[in-house]
Simulated scan of single mutants.
Amino acid sequence: MSAVSTALTDSAIMLRRNLKHTTRNPVTVFNAVLFPIVIMLMFVKVFGGAFNVGDDYVDYSTPGMLVMAVSYGLGATATSVNYDMTKGIINRFKTMDVSRGAILSGHVIVTTVRCLVASAAIVGVAFAMGFDPNASAADWLGVLGLFLLLAIGASWLTVAMGLASKTAESAGLAAVPLIMLPFLSSAFVPADSMGAGVKQFAEYQPFTPIIETLRGLLFGGVDSGDAIAAVAWCVGLAVLGYVWAVSSFKKRA
């Protein structure tokens, strides 16, 4: 068996293992899939009437909720990765000659799959509340592609955080900034409506151009600057996370 096929087989095994762990942990399922829906219902049904965004609030907020679907599952990933590193499981895998790359990629893939499930739930609930995009099939493919880039990039960065943390608790806390960033972006209100300082932070942080690009794909009028920045941020997060994760793994495994 070639090295490539061995790595793919090991990755599939690790993916199955991590999926089982996810489905057996109701807290992880709630945080990753159900809590973004709760946030969406709260903002649209409770706060939405107070925001002047020029459109139906469900149309405005859905792109931001898709980003929330990524960020809210990251704490579980960081904790799971750290648990593997600190509880001796990696040593067991080493005795079984499991591909080291498969151990990391398994966490990334299961996090991405979890994000896709959460995003599908978000879109379904949005349509039930009157979501009315005018996106073409090509636009929806663009939404899916950008969402996958974000999920993969955020997953690698979170895996790296989990590897670098000393305990599972600190690993979970390390992911909190990524969870909070959507609240300080254009996810819920336009950045132009924010106060000085917060407005500039919202404009130049990673999630705002990603959200604006998703919004443009769904409703027309994608800004090329936002699109370039969105892709650059996603790729940059993935590269940073991958290099950091591999370096930390080699030091600790």
Results as ranks from 00 to 15, higher is better:
A3H: 07
S5Q: 03
L8R: 04
A12V: 14
I13M: 14
M14S: 09
L19N: 06
V27E: 11
V27T: 15
N31D: 07
N31C: 05
N31V: 10
N31T: 09
V33N: 03
P36V: 02
M42T: 14
G49M: 09
V53N: 00
G54V: 01
D55W: 14
D55A: 13
D55Q: 13
P63K: 00
G64M: 04
S71C: 15
G75C: 10
A76N: 12
S80D: 12
V81Q: 04
V81T: 10
M85N: 02
T86N: 05
G88R: 11
I89M: 15
R92G: 14
M96V: 02
D97T: 13
H107S: 06
T111F: 01
T112M: 13
T112E: 07
R114K: 13
R114C: 06
V117D: 02
A121N: 02
V123H: 03
V123A: 11
V123W: 05
G124S: 09
V125I: 10
V125K: 01
D132R: 06
P133W: 01
N134M: 06
W140L: 14
V143E: 01
L149C: 13
G153V: 10
S155W: 05
W156H: 12
L157P: 02
T158R: 09
A164C: 04
S165P: 10
T167F: 07
L181T: 09
P182Y: 04
P182I: 04
F183A: 10
F183R: 03
L184T: 08
V189N: 00
A191L: 00
S193Q: 14
G195H: 03
A202Y: 02
Y204A: 06
T208V: 03
L214F: 05
L217C: 00
G220T: 09
G221M: 07
S224R: 12
A227Q: 10
A230V: 10
A232F: 12
W233R: 08
W233L: 11
V235M: 03
G236M: 08
V243F: 13
A245V: 05
S248W: 08
F249P: 07
F249I: 06
A253M: 11
